[in-house]
């Protein structure tokens, strides 16, 4: 394996030592073999705090090769702290090519979003997961939740949805919306907005989930059924937005709210920055694009 820059000779390629990568790869293989099942693994200390994506980073480090092209997003954006630091980390310890373009990347590490562009075969999406157990807030005992997964006792998940409807008149869960994978395991898709749930269904890309603090890895292999749980009379539906993106005019994408001033001014823009930039480069114009450029100048 090629060494990166000489002053980093103390690091193995992609930071983790080969035995650790081997252990993580075994967990990943098992996770792929049992879609949606949470495989325990010996999570390592990483040079970042828990909650910053230690699980995702370990999975990425284990699957990354010198030929890979890496993209890192945080809430859809390539330029936020978490994304920038993790991207810089892998540039430093693995010397891999990085990109912000979804289409060019072979490995995409993500925090809480799935890119708007449809992922294709050969790409790997790595999620950073804070709490892998979808039943955790209803059943605090780990022994019990494992048994419930083993025996496929998922009635409790619907109790949560029932509570939502009873309190809010609709299913008010908007993120970390539980899904059933390949008709068997109920899985927490990490705190992605439920807007992204349909993208997981029969996706061409391999989806890997790493939870560093909770020491769990799970996976959705390509072309696997991922079905969001719901009631017959309250079917699953994704968020919809009244206006298109204020910068690129895109509809049917997930938008972030940006507060503009202290007088109630706000705009809605694509949460996926790469998608938005590409569209603007192609000449799409949203209603506030001119204004924001003036404001910037």
């Amino acid at each position: 394996m090629s060494m990166p820059a000489t002053e980093l000779a103390a690091y193995n390629f992609a930071y983790l030592d080969e035995q650790t990568k081997r252990m993580i790869r075994r967990a990943i293989l098992k996770a792929i073999a049992i879609p949606g099942y949470q495989v325990p693994f010996a999570s390592r200390e990483m040079p970042m705090p828990y909650g910053w994506g230690t699980g995702g980073v370990q999975v990425t480090a284990a699957i990354l090769g010198p030929q890979d092209v890496l993209k890192v997003i945080d809430q859809g954006a390539d330029d936020t702290t978490n994304a920038v630091s993790i991207r810089a980390f892998f540039q430093k310890v693995a010397n891999v090519a990085v990109t912000t373009h979804t289409g060019e990347a072979t490995v995409i590490q993500t925090r809480h979003r799935i890119p708007e562009d449809t992922l294709r075969e050969g790409q790997v999406l790595v999620y950073q997961v804070p709490i892998p157990e979808p039943l955790r807030f209803l059943e605090p005992r780990e022994t019990e939740t494992r048994k419930m997964h083993a025996l496929e006792e998922y009635g409790l998940m619907h109790v949560k949805l029932y509570e939502d409807i009873a309190r809010h008149g609709r299913i008010a869960t908007t993120y970390a919306y539980p899904v059933k994978v390949a008709g068997r395991y109920v899985m927490d898709p990490s705190p992605t907005p439920k807007f992204d749930n349909p993208k997981m269904h029969r996706s061409e890309a391999l989806q890997l989930f790493g939870a560093g603090r909770e020491k769990r890895i799970y996976a959705v292999p390509p072309f696997t059924d991922v079905v969001s749980l719901d009631f017959e009379d309250h079917p699953f539906e994704v968020q919809s937005f009244d206006k298109p993106c204020a910068l690129c005019g895109a509809r049917h994408v997930y938008l972030d709210e940006v507060v503009l001033d202290d007088r109630g001014g706000r705009m809605f823009v694509c949460s996926d920055t790469d998608y938005c930039e590409t569209r603007r480069a192609d000449g799409h114009v949203g209603e506030m694009l001119g204004q924001s450029q003036e404001a910037a100048e």
């Binding site: 409790l156 109790v159 029932y162 409807i165 017959e232 309250h234």
Partner: peptide, 13 residues
């Protein structure tokens, strides 16, 4: 309702 949901009832109403 928990037991109903546990045995597969999926109709909120």
């Amino acid at each position: 309702g928990e037991r109903l949901m546990a045995v597969g009832d999926r109709h909120y109403g």
